[in-house]
């Protein structure tokens, strides 16, 4: 059993949990994830880790309430317990030793940038962060990212805050203006990561995408999370979750992400929430 130490509503349907899980903090590195199971009849869901406190033995995760399992999680508050938290899983972010690095985050992918940017800074890089949201009300982790990055650009799809447009636009502008970067790390919706990869491809910038396929065990046992990278089938749980974005077959990933959509929607109908991530994806498309 893993106790929830703190719960914070960051935006509508977006909740931050701080959970006591000392063993997960022990060897965690930025880019690794965990899997949680809320209740005995529940699913195992993978979550990015937004922060770690080794001394307190806590991890912080940011969850979008999009389906049945996350609806169940949303009912829990500080003091309640989560049945299972396992991790850290996957490989840490391999950013090398860049001089100039970019983090591009979208929606609930933004909090993962907190630790990734910290790692970039520790590697000695000057960091540009571009974080994008649908609208002003959905902006999360702005201050945390601002505190870490050397420069921050916030975008909203509807122009209600910051740059009016998609995260790829400021990135494209910088590149066209001659800015040079050693590495770009993208975490967010698949369509965003695919778009970032296309922007950086002509410039040959090493670009990393943190993939979010469907998972079950998270230890390489089932292959539900397989993704095509450079023509080879990889398991995101043990070979990833981060891969060379220029090699990833994002269309196949999108196709696989919809496998359980119908069943998920039926399950989520028990609750009042619509899948906002999906709305977001269809809007961007």
């Amino acid at each position: 059993m893993f106790r929830i130490i703190a719960k914070r509503q960051l935006a509508e349907d977006i909740i931050e949990y701080t959970i006591k899980a000392p063993d997960v903090t022990r060897h965690h590195r930025p880019g690794q994830f965990c899997i949680i199971r809320v209740a005995s009849h529940g699913e195992r869901i993978p979550l990015s880790i937004a922060d770690i406190n080794t001394e307190a033995g806590t991890i912080t995760v940011v969850v979008q309430i999009i389906g049945h399992t996350t609806q169940e999680l949303a009912r829990l508050g500080a003091g309640d317990t989560i049945l299972d938290v396992v991790g850290p899983l996957g490989h840490p972010t391999d950013i090398g030793t860049p001089e100039r690095a970019v983090f591009v985050g979208g929606g609930v992918g933004v909090p993962a940038g907190n630790l990734i940017i910290r790692e970039m800074k520790q590697a000695g890089a000057e960091v540009l962060a571009i974080i994008g949201f649908r609208t002003r009300e959905l902006i999360i982790y702005e201050e945390k990212i601002r505190a870490q990055a050397d420069e921050l650009i916030v975008t909203t799809d509807d122009g209600s805050y910051g740059y009016h447009g998609l995260v790829t636009e400021p990135l494209q502008q910088r590149l066209e203006a001659g800015s040079e970067y050693d590495v770009v790390v993208a975490v967010g919706p698949v369509v965003m990561m695919r778009a970032v990869a296309e922007v950086t491809r002509p410039y040959g910038i090493h670009t990393i995408a943190s993939l979010n396929p469907i998972m079950v065990d998270g230890t390489g046992m089932c292959g539900a999370c397989r993704v095509l990278v450079g023509g080879q089938t990889k398991f995101a749980c043990v070979d990833g979750p981060e891969f060379d974005a220029h090699q990833v077959d994002f269309d196949q990933l999108l196709n696989r992400l919809r496998i359980y959509r119908e069943q998920e929607q039926q399950a989520a109908q028990a609750g009042p929430h619509l899948c906002r991530l999906e709305q977001q994806i269809s809007e961007i498309q």
Partner: peptide
């Protein structure tokens, strides 16, 4: 349970 040796504990 919930311990991946090599990841959670080495």
């Amino acid at each position: 349970t919930d311990v991946v040796v090599g990841r959670t504990l080495t």
